[in-house]
Design a binder for these strands. Structure first.
Length: 410
RNA sequence: GGAGGGAUGCCCGAGUGGCUAAAGGGGGCUGACUGUAAAUCAGCUGGCUAUGCCUACGGCGGUUCGAAUCCGUCUCCCUCCA
């Protein structure tokens, strides 16, 4: 007997809450389950936080079930207040549409779409056309304001203020589920644990209108062991789009994770078998670096492909382990040789390639001993790079301990 | 519609005419220690053609030698009343 995919998800840490675990197991073993996850079109790329559901969808698809990636082109016009402290900025319709297209393209990269194995669809398709009064009469009457107000997700907002537009979000999301149930026979919705209330609203609506019981399942909201939200760096989200967040940085993001998170991350963000994960996360001390290396590599392969992952790994080796590696894979900027001849200010070039935010930032960092050229600390604010600094591999710039950038000249 | 309260740097939050590039905290960054980890300690945390200059306390305009601080006006938010 093959393993139930529910167990796979569960042992890998994808499950926070489920409506009816037994029923869901049954479905998974007896039929092809059509399930969906929604993605807001608030940005033109998904980020690591969204990747959890994407990975869950991949597991389920592998087990023979059929995912629907729902692009929230309609719901993003409203803005989900769940768990937020403040109202979201309203985005223009054009922006939402463009974002939706980018996200759709990204999902195509993770899921298999041939032979109707998966679907992506935009809820703008049905939401934007709705007639207000008709909608209220058919759908709105099934929602109890009393119950909605009691929900945990709105708690903070009831203290700070919640506008009517946002209050409608849950109803629209519930309606999405209904629509997908009617169109495709979708019987499972996945989402983050903060979505639990929204998911239940959909389950409820389908029960009332269709007399059918459908399922909902949430994954735990990931935080790092140090308490921060998963997928955030100083400069913002960890995007999956290589143009917004390079594969090199993506690899660095994973390899720099907290020791305590390694096992959790391996389970969710790689497809390695559980016993391999157990072996890796049992490593201790400096050894655990091996586990992080594997994590970074595997995660980068899934999002950016093998070639990019190898390049990122080679770049990391060149920078961090002084035994070879491939400097070509490091972030590199090409500069005209004439600038070098004129004397290229160290502060200027650090700011220019983005190792520091500004020249002032570079100056500060230099004064604190965090600016290196070819692995030698620079302590003179007015230092300049000259042809003398150039090597066969260009000039290696470093800000702090971990951020490298290579200059080559032409 | 009426009455009141509010908008400060990445976030929270002090400041109510000059000593304010703006207390304090969080976050972030750098250094030391390490393992590209955590914890800890120290420093830094608007920009620039840099012992000075420019920009900044919701927007615009005004008072003043001088405004985040006072006045007018606009925008947005909150609370109570209808």
């Amino acid at each position: 007997m093959t393993k139930n995919v529910f167990d796979t998800l569960n042992e890998r840490g994808f499950v926070a809450q489920v409506t009816d675990e037994d029923a869901l197991r049954q479905q998974f073993s007896n039929e092809t389950v059509i399930f969906y996850t929604g993605y807001d079109s608030t940005a033109n790329s998904l980020h690591v936080g969204n990747l959890v559901t994407v990975m869950a969808m991949m597991h389920l698809q592998q087990a023979g079930h059929r995912p629907i990636g729902l692009i929230g082109g309609g719901t993003t016009m409203i803005g989900d207040p769940s768990g937020k402290t403040e109202m979201r900025q309203m985005l223009t319709r054009e922006l939402i549409e463009a974002n939706g297209r980018s996200i759709q393209a990204q999902l195509n990269h993770y899921l298999k779409f041939d032979a109707d194995q998966a679907i992506t669809i935009n809820n703008a398709e049905w939401l934007l056309e709705l007639n207000y009064v008709t909608f209220l009469r058919e759908i709105g009457r099934h929602f109890s304001v009393n119950r909605m107000l009691a929900a945990e997700a709105y708690k903070q907002r009831l203290e700070r203020g919640l506008s009517f537009i946002e209050f409608n979000y849950q109803i629209l999301q519930a309606y999405d589920y209904l629509e997908l149930f009617r169109r495709y026979g979708c019987t499972l919705q996945l989402g983050g644990d903060d979505q639990w209330g929204n998911l239940l609203a959909g389950v409820d609506l389908i029960r009332r209108l269709e007399g059918k019981t459908v399922q909902a399942m949430t994954y735990p909201l990931l935080t790092t062991s140090s308490g921060a939200k998963m997928g955030k760096t100083a400069d913002g989200a960890v995007w999956l789009d290589p143009n917004k967040f390079s594969p090199y940085d993506y690899y660095q993001y994973w390899i720099n994770c907290d020791d305590r998170d390694v096992e959790k991350l391996l389970k969710i963000f790689t497809f390695l078998p559980m016993d391999e994960i157990k072996r890796l996360s049992a490593l201790e001390g400096a050894e655990i670096r091996e586990a992080k290396r594997v994590l970074a590599y595997e995660a980068t392969v899934i999002t950016h492909g093998e070639a990019e992952a190898q390049a990122a790994e080679a770049g990391a080796q060149a920078a961090f382990s002084h035994k070879g590696g491939d400097v070509d894979s490091m972030p590199t900027t090409t500069v005209s040789r004439s600038r070098l001849a004129d004397g290229l200010g160290v502060l200027e070039i650090f700011a220019e390639v983005g190792l520091t935010k500004s020249r002032s930032d570079a100056r500060r960092m230099l004064q604190q001993g965090g600016i290196y050229v070819n692995d030698n600390r620079v302590d003179d604010v007015s230092a300049e790079l000259t042809a003398e600094d150039d090597t066969d591999e260009g000039i290696l710039l470093r800000a702090g301990k971990k951020k490298y950038h290579r200059l080559v000249f032409e």
